[in-house]
Design a protein around this nucleic acid. Sequence first.
DNA 1: CTTTCTAATTAAGTTGACTTAACTATATAA
DNA 2: TTATATAGTTAAGTCAACTTAATTAGAAAG
Lengths: 129, 129
Amino acid sequence: MHRSMRGWIRFARSSGLSLPQFSVLMQLRHRGSFGMSEIAEKFEITPAAASQLTEKLVQAGYIERIEDPNDRRAKLLRLSKAGEKFVVEGVEERYRWINDLTKRLSAEEQAKISEALTILIKAMEGLIL
Amino acid sequence: MHRSMRGWIRFARSSGLSLPQFSVLMQLRHRGSFGMSEIAEKFEITPAAASQLTEKLVQAGYIERIEDPNDRRAKLLRLSKAGEKFVVEGVEERYRWINDLTKRLSAEEQAKISEALTILIKAMEGLIL
DNA sequence: CTTTCTAATTAAGTTGACTTAACTATATAA
DNA sequence: TTATATAGTTAAGTCAACTTAATTAGAAAG
């Protein structure tokens, strides 16, 4: 786990992004487009800070600001092609070690783990929703 | 996982410590005493930064600097009583949600997960050693 | 013993992420 | 329509963590 953490942090840093910035990209990929104010809430920072944070991501070419059709004050953030590619690579980097781990497990062991994780995921969903 | 992350970060922040500072305390608890240079290596910062980082932990009363009996230039860092207490509370805070999760699982499900985790831990040990 | 290397610290300055405050533009309510 | 609230931005300044460079003390090698 520690190894993967380092991998992630290194990947983010080597690209010149802070961890929160990278995190925003991850959120965008996972949950689709959302607005500035949601970033502020989610990361517990002021709207001003959120704006500055996203500005850097826009300048880096990873996200695009698009107009919210329902509210012309608001802006939606969307992953660009480059951003998409970047995040996918980051995730691969982060989870590379899992491949090594999987190789060490028998088919039976893998099945057991898969089942256990399914149980856990369901329970966690119940916890959140 | 996200929830627990936030919990940890909040706990660290509310105590006035940065996450790296808290991380040093965790390492100290997990691996016992070690020296300044190891911190610099582990966190990929200069010795100067490591020194400043630990200074704050010393001032907060969480760790103590003791002399290395083998090398009088070097100093060993050790968790103080207060530091020990602080870390334990932090860990509890971080993993509180696991209790909620466990309550949602039947005895059978818990057994399956336990078995799967045992398999995983062994495989990871093999990966590291 | 003297030179050189290593561990840690301190001082000074840089950087980046954050804050507050002021502002623009749009939405909503009176 | 006017007033008020909301979404986002920009400017200015704060603060913490980092860097480099200089310093002290002890270790290791010649």
